[in-house]
Measured scan of single mutants.
Amino acid sequence: MTTFKLIINGKTLKGEITIEAVDAAEAEKIFKQYANDNGIDGEWTYDDATKTDTVTE
């Protein structure tokens, strides 16, 4: 398992969460579901060097 981080730069929700996932694709799926569940819809970027997804509304 690898640690992945999501940075949220939303209009109403800001912060970050960290998860353990098998790979980047699994982490992205989990993060996008989390964002959807919390009403966050924005531009996504991924930095492989830091294993960090960022969503900005």
Score class of each variant (00 low, 15 high):
Ala21Asn: 05
Phe4Ala: 01
Glu16Ser: 10
Lys14Arg: 10
Gly42Glu: 03
Glu28Met: 15
Glu20Cys: 15
Phe31Pro: 01
Asn38Phe: 12
Asn38Lys: 07
Ile40Val: 06
Val22Gly: 03
Gly15Asn: 08
Ala21Gly: 03
Lys29Val: 08
Thr56Asp: 06
Ala24Gln: 11
Leu13Tyr: 14
Ala35Trp: 07
Ile19Trp: 03
Gly15Lys: 13
Ile7Thr: 02
Glu43Ile: 13
Thr52Cys: 12
Glu43Leu: 10
Tyr46Gly: 02
Ala49Cys: 14
Tyr34Ser: 00
Gly39Leu: 05
Asp47Val: 09
Asp23Gln: 02
Asn9Ser: 07
Asp23Cys: 13
Val22Ser: 11
Phe31Arg: 00
Tyr46Arg: 08
Asn38Val: 12
Met1Arg: 12
Asp47His: 07
Thr2Met: 11
Phe31Ala: 01
Thr56Phe: 07
Ala24Met: 10
Lys5Tyr: 11
Phe4Arg: 00
Asp53Leu: 15
Ala27Gln: 01
Asp41Ala: 12
Trp44His: 02
Ile30Arg: 02
Thr50Lys: 07
Ala27Cys: 12
Asn38His: 14
Leu6Glu: 03
Thr3Phe: 10
Glu57Leu: 12
Leu6Lys: 00
Thr45Asp: 04
Ala24Cys: 14
Ala35Thr: 08
Thr50Tyr: 06
Gly39Pro: 03
Glu57Asp: 08
Thr50Phe: 06
Lys32Gln: 09
Met1Trp: 07
Gly10Asp: 03
Lys5Pro: 02
Thr50Asn: 06
Asp23Lys: 02
Asp23Met: 05
Glu28Pro: 01
Thr12Pro: 02
Gly15His: 13
Glu16Thr: 12
Asp41Cys: 15
Asp48Tyr: 11
Thr52Ile: 08
Thr3Met: 11
Glu26Cys: 12
Thr3Asn: 03
Ile19Asn: 00
Gly39Ile: 04
Thr50Ser: 11
Glu20Asp: 06
Ala21Gln: 03
Ala25Pro: 02
Asp23Glu: 01
Ile7Cys: 13
Glu16Asp: 03
Glu28Ile: 14
Glu57Tyr: 07
Gln33Leu: 06
Tyr34Gln: 01
Thr12Glu: 09
Gly10Thr: 14
Ala49Phe: 11
Ile7Phe: 04
Ile7Tyr: 06
Leu13Ala: 06
Glu43Asp: 11
Glu26Val: 05
Glu26Asn: 05
Glu28His: 15
Tyr46His: 12
Glu20His: 10
Lys32Gly: 01
Leu6Ile: 09
Asp41Val: 14
Asp37Ala: 10
Asn9His: 09
Thr45Met: 08
Asp53Phe: 15
Leu6Gln: 01
Thr18Asp: 01
Glu57Val: 13
Lys51Gln: 12
Glu43Phe: 12
Ala35Met: 13
Ala35Ser: 02
Lys51Ile: 05
Asp47Met: 10
Val55Met: 03
Tyr46Ser: 03
Glu26Pro: 00
Glu16Gly: 05
Val55Trp: 05
Asp47Trp: 07
Ile19Asp: 00
Asp53Thr: 15
Ile19Arg: 01
Thr18His: 09
Thr3Gln: 11
Trp44Met: 03
Gln33Asp: 06
Lys11Glu: 11
Ile40Glu: 02
Ile19His: 00
Gln33Cys: 13
Trp44Asp: 01
Ala49Met: 10
Leu13Trp: 15
Asp47Leu: 06
Asp53Ile: 15
Lys14Ser: 08
Asp37Arg: 04
Ile17Asn: 00
Ala35Gln: 02
Lys11Thr: 12
Gly10Ser: 10
Glu28Asp: 11
Phe4Trp: 09
Glu28Gly: 08
Leu6Tyr: 11
Glu57Gln: 07
Phe4Thr: 01
Tyr34Ala: 00
Thr50Asp: 04
Ala25Gln: 12
Asp41Trp: 13
Lys11Arg: 08
Trp44Leu: 01
Lys14Ala: 05
Asn38Asp: 02
Met1Asp: 02
Ala49Ser: 11
Asn9Ala: 05
Asp41Gly: 05
Thr54Phe: 08
Lys29Glu: 07
Glu20Val: 15
Gly42Tyr: 08
Lys32Cys: 13
Lys5Ala: 02
Ala21His: 05
Ala25Gly: 06
Glu16Trp: 14
Thr50Trp: 05
Thr52Lys: 03
Asn9Gln: 09
Leu13Asp: 06
Thr54Gln: 07
Val55Asp: 05
Thr50Glu: 03
Asp53Trp: 15
Glu43Val: 14
Asn38Ser: 10
Thr2Ser: 09
Thr52Ser: 05
Asp48Gln: 10
Lys14Asp: 06
Leu6Thr: 01
Val22Leu: 12
Ile30Thr: 02
Asn9Pro: 02
Thr54Tyr: 10
Phe4Gln: 02
Asn9Ile: 13
Ala35Lys: 02
Thr54Asn: 04
Ala25Arg: 09
Trp44Val: 02
Lys11Ala: 12
Phe4Glu: 02
Gly39Ser: 04
Asp47Ser: 06
Glu28Lys: 14
Lys51Val: 03
Lys51Asp: 03
Thr3Val: 12
Ile40Asn: 04
Leu6Asn: 01
Thr45Ala: 09
Thr54Lys: 05
Thr18Cys: 14
Ala49Gly: 07
Lys32Asp: 00
Glu57Pro: 05
Glu16Val: 13
Glu20Ser: 10
Asp53Cys: 15
Asp41Ile: 14
Glu28Val: 09
Val22Met: 12
Lys51Pro: 03
Gly10Phe: 14
Glu57Lys: 02
Leu13His: 13
Thr52Leu: 06
Thr56Val: 09
Lys51Asn: 11
Glu20Leu: 13
Thr54Pro: 04
Glu20Thr: 11
Gly10Tyr: 10
Thr45Ile: 07
Lys32Ala: 08
Asn9Arg: 09
Tyr34Trp: 15
Asn9Trp: 10
Gly39Trp: 07
Glu20Lys: 11
Ile30Glu: 01
Asn9Leu: 11
Ile7Pro: 00
Thr12Phe: 14
Gly15Met: 15
Ala35Tyr: 06
Tyr46Ala: 02
Thr52Gln: 06
Glu43Met: 10
Val22Phe: 11
Glu26Ala: 12
Leu13Gln: 09
Ala35Gly: 02
Lys32Tyr: 06
Thr56Glu: 08
Asn38Ile: 14
Ile30Cys: 13
Leu13Val: 12
Thr2Gln: 13
Ala35Asp: 04
Thr56Met: 05
Lys5Met: 09
Asp37Tyr: 09
Asp47Phe: 10
Thr3Asp: 02
Tyr46Asn: 02
Glu57Trp: 08
Ile8Val: 07
Val22Pro: 07
Ile19Tyr: 02
Tyr46Phe: 12
Glu28Phe: 14
Phe31Lys: 00
Tyr34Thr: 01
Glu20Ile: 13
Leu6Phe: 15
Ala49Tyr: 09
Ile7Arg: 02
Glu16Lys: 04
Ile30Pro: 01
Lys51Arg: 10
Asn36Trp: 15
Asp23Ile: 03
Glu43Tyr: 11
Thr45Arg: 08
Ile40Phe: 10
Ala35Cys: 15
Asp41Ser: 12
Trp44Pro: 01
Glu57Asn: 06
Thr45Ser: 11
Ile8His: 00
Ala27Thr: 00
Val55Tyr: 06
Asp23Ala: 06
Asn38Thr: 04
Tyr34Asn: 01
Glu43Ala: 08
Glu28Cys: 15
Thr12Arg: 04
Tyr46Val: 04
Thr18Ser: 09
Thr56Pro: 05
Lys14Met: 08
Thr3Glu: 09
Asp41Tyr: 15
Ile19Thr: 01
Val55Asn: 08
Gly10Pro: 01
Thr56Ile: 07
Ile7Ser: 03
Glu26Gly: 04
Leu13Asn: 06
Ala35Phe: 05
Thr3Ser: 07
Thr12Gly: 10
Asp41Phe: 14
Ile30Lys: 05
Gln33Val: 07
Thr2Cys: 15
Gly42Ser: 03
Lys51Met: 08
Thr12Ile: 10
Asn9Cys: 15
Asn38Cys: 15
Lys11Leu: 14
Ala24Lys: 14
Ile40Ala: 03
Gly39Phe: 08
Thr45Asn: 07
Ile40Gly: 02
Asp53Asn: 15
Glu16Cys: 15
Ile30Ser: 04
Ala25Asn: 12
Ile17Asp: 00
Glu26Phe: 03
Leu6Pro: 02
Ala27Leu: 05
Glu43Pro: 04
Lys11Pro: 10
Thr54Leu: 08
Val22Ala: 13
Ile7Asn: 01
Asp48Cys: 13
Gly15Val: 15
Ile40Tyr: 03
Ile30Gly: 01
Ala24Ile: 14
Tyr46Met: 08
Ala49Asp: 11
Lys32Trp: 08
Lys14Tyr: 13
Asn36Gln: 14
Lys32Ile: 10
Lys29His: 07
Glu26His: 09
Trp44Asn: 03
